[in-house]
Structure formats: structure tokens, C-alpha cells
Computed example of a mutant assay.
Amino acid sequence: MTTSSLFHALLLLAAAGASAAATLRPRQGGDECCFQLASVGTVNETVVESHVGSLLLGGPFQQGGFCLDGAAGTVRDGLGHGCFMRAPAYQFACWAAGAVGPNAFAVSRAGPGGRPHLAYDGRPGVFLACPVRSSAPPSYDIYSADKPDAAGCLAVALALVDETPACAAAAASNAEAPSSSSVAISARPAPTPPLPRRRRAQDPART
């Protein structure tokens, strides 16, 4: 092999390696529901995973790849780490291999954007996208709706992207999955109800 052809082969190998590394894909069996995630709502970004396992919307990290164990209600990432949201922060992250969190995940039927999305704990799959400070371009940490301080956060759904055929079966079998009409995705906070009007004291002369 000549020097030029060897150099060309190395370039092709490097390009293939870079493409494969762009997404952390879990090892999967033929009947597993595996997917990537993207937010639907005011924030529309791909879910990426940081080097410490935090899941974010946008940012310089690799696109996350996940698999759902429908029977156990668990999600794992491409490294086999369990992904969940736990108190007190309720941030969505993937922890050490074998870690099991408190959440029960499921694949919903068609949700916002017309695609199945990730739901948890038998509730509509609403997540909170909270801006990361000093992030350029903007990125968002992901939390469950149980986050105590949601100031500045935006409600989003996490839609399945590039999912395996098994995910359709998982969604069809999920009788409790919320429909798109039951998932409220809005950037505006709920309006404050008006204060009740005080009733005037009744005039004794009219009684």
C-alpha cells in the first residue's frame, strides 16, 4: 500500500470513528425499545449527555442513546448506567451501572409533535428545561416536574427519535400512557387567579 492510499484509509477510519462516537448507543437486543430523545415545546433541542452523566438539551456533548426496560420501568444510557430523577434536586441524569432510581418510565402513545414520548410515574411526561448559566450557545438542564424551584424553567416533552420497532409495541401496550391532549406544554406560567371580592357589610337599616 502506498503512503497516499494509507493516509486516505486512515482518514476514512477517523471519519467513521467520529460518526460512531457522535451518539452513545446502548447495546440492544432485537426486542428492546431503544431511542434518542429530543425536546418538544418552547425549547426544541436534542438530548445530550455530559461526561458526568447529566442530561441536557443542547450543548457540546454527545447525543444520548437510551434503552427502556418496559417490564422494570427503567431507562439506561449507552454505558449501561441507570437514568432517573431523584430527590432533592430531581435532575435527570444517568448514574453508575446497576443504579436503580425511584422513577417508573414508559413510552407514551403519540404526544406533542405527533411522536411517542417518554412518560414517568404514571403521569403525563412533562419535564422542566432550566437554563444553564454562562452557557453559549444556550443549553438546559432537565428536571422532573417535581423540582421545587421551577423559576425560569420551561415545560417540555421528550419525544422519541430514531427509535427501534419495539418502541411502537411498548407504546401500544401502555394503556396508561397519556395522550397529547393531556400533556400541557407552555412557556407561560399559569395565570394567577383573581382575588375574591369582599362583600360589603349589609346596611342594618335595610334588614
Rank of each mutant, 00 (worst) to 15 (best):
P194D: 02
N174I: 00
P138Q: 08
V40F: 09
D149L: 04
L160R: 03
C34G: 14
Q28T: 12
A119P: 02
D31C: 00
G113S: 04
G113M: 01
A110T: 11
V48E: 08
S39N: 04
G17I: 01
T42L: 00
V47P: 12
C130D: 13
R123L: 15
S181Y: 05
V107Q: 08
K147R: 15
R199Q: 14
A18F: 01
L158C: 03
V43N: 07
A18S: 08
E176Q: 11
G17L: 07
A14S: 13
A170P: 00
R25Q: 13
A9C: 13
A9F: 10
P124L: 05
L6D: 15
L24V: 02
S50T: 15
T3F: 03
M1G: 15
A166G: 09
A166S: 13
G152E: 11
A99S: 14
E176W: 00
P131Q: 05
V132H: 07
G78K: 09
A119H: 04
H8V: 02
A110L: 12
A136P: 07
L160I: 03
G98L: 06
L56W: 02
F66C: 13
C67H: 01
Y120W: 12
H51R: 12
H117A: 11
A151C: 04
P131L: 03
T164I: 01
F35I: 09
